[in-house]
């Protein structure tokens, strides 16, 4: 079973040289720590920055320079700032190559729910609905089950939807899965995790073909 940093490390393998990438809050943010050597990616922060850098050194925090999670950050050489309409314009126009975000539920059709728990949590969708409606390549990083132990990979989402038919791939602490027309296709399993365990913890339709290799990173 992977910890959050290992999930981020596995996700980093999806990055390709020259990609413009939007990383969501939580596990996706950690992916920035594991960008493979020899690969250059440009991180987009939807509050208006291309070229997001590391956290600032203590004492160098700049309140005018934050990421979409409202954390203090830095910008790298060659970065650019822009307004929120242009930011979502480049997302809508398909200029961002890869979006990695968290989810509460994903359906076997690639629907995603990650913004609202009726009667409980009212925070809003932020930029998530814009991102999932437009991004070419959407990968979800999440735990396989919710805190109650229920599967988050479902035949249909129960929670209010963020977007429909948009998730392409899922990386959890147990497995890497593609979302195909037929359902979740198991690609890799975490070291020490059996196919049986993944089957038991996946409520949606799961396709298993041949030997399932262990993840590497």
């Amino acid at each position: 079973m992977l910890n959050k940093n290992q999930i981020a490390q596995r996700l980093a393998k999806e990055l390709k040289d020259g990609f413009y990438v939007n990383l969501g809050i939580g596990i996706p943010t950690l992916v920035a720590n594991y960008i493979p050597e020899g690969i250059k990616v440009v991180l987009q922060s939807e509050n208006g920055l291309l070229g997001m850098g590391a956290f600032p050194f203590e004492g160098e925090e700049d309140p005018d320079l934050i990421n979409a999670g409202k954390q203090t950050i830095t910008s790298v050489p060659g970065s650019s700032f822009f307004d929120s309409a242009m930011s979502f314009g480049m997302i809508r126009a398909g200029k961002v190559d890869l979006t990695i975000l968290g989810a509460m539920e994903v359906s076997e059709k690639g629907d995603i729910a990650n913004w609202k728990i009726p009667g409980k949590m009212v925070k809003g969708m932020g930029g998530a609905m814009d991102l999932v409606a437009s991004a070419k390549n959407i990968i979800v990083a999440m735990m396989h089950s919710n805190p109650k132990g229920e599967s988050k990979l479902l035949p249909r989402c129960v929670l209010p939807l963020t977007g429909i038919g948009c998730v392409k791939k899922i990386v959890t602490e147990l497995a890497v899965l593609d979302v195909t027309k037929e359902g979740f296709k198991l690609l890799e399993r975490a070291p020490g995790v059996s196919v049986e365990e993944i089957v038991a913890k996946t409520a949606g339709k799961l396709i298993i073909e041949g030997e399932i290799p262990e993840m590497e990173w």
């Binding site: 929120s84 309409a85 809508r92 969708m125 814009d130 409606a133 429909i164």
Partner: peptide
């Protein structure tokens, strides 16, 4: 509550003198 890009672009439309926009954000959701 509305999607962030929709919020930004509805402001932009007002400033550009356009009455409305079309966006895919929120299709299939509440």
């Amino acid at each position: 509550l509305i999607p962030q890009g929709t919020l930004a672009t509805r402001c932009m439309a007002a400033g550009y003198g356009m009455p409305a926009i079309f966006t895919p954000a929120g299709v299939g959701t509440e």
